[in-house]
């Protein structure tokens, strides 16, 4: 019994519990994802988890930290899952391993381990891989592709030729490419209505994956694992900018709803900008952080060269966190009327 200091009773909470709930929160999105692209995603999740735990164990051992305590905290698995969910589902196995190791070894442990990393490790993995392997990172399976488990496994293991099945694109990508090729002769409403890749209000199928993340995120909020500030800021920033441009020219820009349910929007809103370690800590800071990520993500996704902008936007804002936190310190008890 540790009688050195009060309080002598503690709440029922631990890092492991927090991380476990984050993982649970991801499940609805994962389920929809499996339904959409097949079991390959489970394989990717497993590989990422394995790679993350291996990297974590290695680094803990090198740094002389207690292995059991930190390996079981669940933080590496959260990172691993976020990586698996942002990488193309049929990417070769080594891509996800490289990305995960990069996140755990470099972004996490070289910065001091749990709680010390200024950048979101999963986003580092994404950024590093999309810069280093842009082609592989943009090969998404063609929609409705029904591959057997065996074929999926072969693709991931690198035992089957990739080219023919991998010409798909994410809905965001498809939209951007079509607009670029059309040179003004096509407009967004027609595209959305005619192309197969688009569904009711966003990418076909992807709508449901996003809805899954939304569901899980709301659950986390209800469990008080995350606060609403960063997600709302993010979704607000994204949809405000989207709405402004959409109202200005609906021919050229997709609706805010489309953007909310496309790409990494909802995953980002509830599972990435909410990362406590690399995000802001004050309530106003979280709003500002989320909002800025939203605005930047939209900008990069629509005007930049990458299919989605969440990763870069998050990393950029990670840099600003200390500053935002410093300037958004809330007034304390009894000092609210002070100048």
């Amino acid at each position: 019994m540790d009688f050195s200091t009060p309080p002598y009773v503690l709440g029922e909470t631990s890092v492991r519990r927090v991380m476990l709930q984050v993982l649970l929160g991801l499940l609805p999105g994962i389920a929809a994802y499996v339904w959409l692209v097949g079991a390959s995603i489970v394989l990717q999740l497993a590989m990422a988890t394995l790679a993350a735990l291996t990297g974590e164990a290695l680094m803990l051992w090198l740094r002389g930290r207690p292995l059991r305590l930190f390996l079981s905290d669940g933080s590496a698995i959260v990172t691993a899952w976020l990586i698996a969910l942002t990488f193309p589902p049929l990417a070769p196995w080594w891509l996800i391993v490289v990305g995960t190791l990069c996140a755990i070894v470099v972004a996490k442990h070289l910065y001091g381990g749990l709680g010390q990393n200024p950048f979101n490790p999963a986003m580092i993995a994404f950024a590093v891989c999309i810069v280093s392997f842009p082609a592989l990172m943009s090969q998404w399976p063609v929609l409705g592709l029904k591959l057997s488990l065996d074929e999926q496994f072969k693709l991931i293991a690198g035992l089957a030729p990739r080219i023919d099945v991998m010409s798909g694109a994410t809905p965001l990508d498809a939209l951007k490419t079509a607009l670029k090729l059309g040179e003004g002769s096509v407009d967004v409403p027609t595209l959305l209505a005619t192309q197969d890749v688009f569904g009711n209000f966003a990418g076909r199928g992807w709508e449901w994956v996003s809805s899954g993340y939304l569901l899980g995120g709301l659950w986390l909020w209800q469990r008080k694992i995350i606060s609403w500030h960063a997600p709302l800021g993010f979704l607000g920033g994204l949809s405000l900018l989207a709405a402004a441009l959409w109202m200005w020219s609906p021919q050229q820009f997709a609706s805010p709803l489309f953007h909310l349910f496309s790409g990494g929007s909802l995953l980002g809103a509830f599972f990435i900008v909410t990362d406590p370690v690399s995000g802001c800590t004050t309530t106003r800071g979280k709003l500002i952080f989320g909002f800025s990520v939203g605005v930047l993500a939209y900008t990069i996704r629509v005007f930049g060269g990458y299919p989605d902008g969440v990763a870069f936007a998050v990393l950029l804002l990670n840099l600003c966190v200390p500053l935002i936190d410093m300037y958004t310190q809330p007034p304390i008890f009894g000092m609210k009327n002070e100048p």
Partner: peptide, 14 residues
């Protein structure tokens, strides 16, 4: 009053 579990690093969860 069970022993307090081992101290972990702060994760800035707020």
């Amino acid at each position: 009053f069970p022993a307090s579990p081992p101290e972990m690093p702060c994760i800035r969860c707020g």
